[in-house]
Simulated assay, not measured.
Amino acid sequence: MHILEGNWNYPNQIISGAGRLAELATQCQEKGFEHPLIVTDPGLSSLPICDELKQTLERANIKFDVYDQVSANPNQEDVCRGVEQFKRSKHDSVIAFGGGSALDAAKAIALMVGQELPIWEFEDVGDNWCKVKEEGVAPVIAIPTTAGTGSEVGRASVITDSEKHLKKIIFHPKMLPVLVILDPNVTTGLPAKITAATGLDALSHCLEAFCSPSYHPMAEGIALEGMRLIKENLQLAYENGDNLEARMHMLVASSMGAAAFQKGLGAMHAIAHSIGATYGAHHGLLNAILMPYVLEENYS
């Protein structure tokens, strides 16, 4: 296998390559994180890969706790419980470990630990982000275990309003994680069905960004390359989950899709968010189902 490894800063600090999860403790120490809260989901928290993450911190004598009560479509209750645990145990940072749901919840928790207003006051409408007390936002290290949403390079979280059955975008520039670790080893245990659904989520980000009529040549170029990587690697990752090169390319393509969609998204995501908030269905799967119909409608 060709060795794929890199360090770059776009849009945030990213270290990529097989085995780089082992650098987590060193990165925490360099950033002065003494007591992080690991935010993940209940399925992932019981797997060996989560044990590996915890052992990395334990060997460096870094204290931590785990919050794993994150729903498939995270809601305000998930965030509130995480905030309570963060404050109760006096954490100083967040490690987001999981798919898009865990990463979104983790970023929202990191935002809300220093706020007095309710979370919906920071919905991405107008200048709501200006209400945030920036000094209270906790720093986040993001470690995605799926190649789909690209939430690790985003400044927002999608949180479900469980009372109104609506998905809302919570935004602030300081929600952008201070570090991303892209390690394909953490994705190898992903079931083929989830590999496909999350991979098509990444494709939908790149595709809708590329098709958006907005003028953003940089995002358009990133979207095009992201689609190429997905075309060449998604089926390989689906057929052989241990293919680290394909897994690495998919993680990068996922991040690229999220970086590109600042150019714009479209009907796939608009409809998928509505259905997902109502029925709790998997976001990537919904995008995949909707994709051919939206493309046909747009083409006509």
Rank of each mutant, 00 (worst) to 15 (best):
E5K: 12
I14T: 04
G19Q: 11
A22Y: 04
E23T: 11
L24E: 03
A25G: 05
Q27P: 00
C28T: 08
K31S: 03
E34Q: 05
H35K: 13
P36L: 13
G43F: 04
S46A: 15
P48D: 13
P48G: 10
P48M: 13
I49F: 09
E52R: 15
L53R: 06
K63Y: 00
F64I: 09
Y67Q: 01
Y67N: 03
D68Q: 10
N73G: 00
N75W: 12
Q76W: 09
V79Q: 02
R81S: 05
G82V: 14
R88F: 13
H91A: 04
S93G: 03
I95L: 15
I109N: 01
E116R: 15
P118A: 11
E123V: 12
E123F: 03
K131C: 07
P139S: 01
V140W: 01
I141M: 02
A142M: 02
A142P: 01
P144G: 08
P144Q: 08
A147M: 05
T149D: 11
G150M: 03
S151I: 03
G154Y: 14
G154V: 11
S157C: 11
V158L: 14
V158H: 15
T160D: 02
D161H: 04
D161F: 11
E163V: 14
K164L: 15
K164E: 12
H165Q: 05
K168E: 07
K168N: 13
I170K: 08
I170L: 02
L176P: 01
P177W: 14
V178H: 10
L182N: 09
L182E: 01
P184K: 14
T188F: 08
G189V: 02
G189S: 11
A192H: 00
T195Q: 06
G199L: 07
L207K: 10
F210S: 03
P213C: 10
P217V: 06
M218A: 11
M218S: 10
G221R: 15
A223K: 13
A223Q: 06
G226A: 15
K231V: 02
E239W: 00
G241I: 00
G241T: 00
G241V: 09
D242C: 12
M248I: 10
L251C: 08
S254K: 08
S255H: 14
M256C: 04
A260G: 10
F261E: 13
F261L: 11
F261C: 01
Q262G: 05
G266S: 04
G266P: 03
G266I: 08
A267E: 10
M268P: 09
H269S: 06
H269E: 14
A270L: 15
A277W: 09
A277L: 06
G280N: 06
H282P: 08
G284T: 08
L285S: 06
V294M: 06
V294P: 00
L295N: 06
E297W: 15
N298F: 12
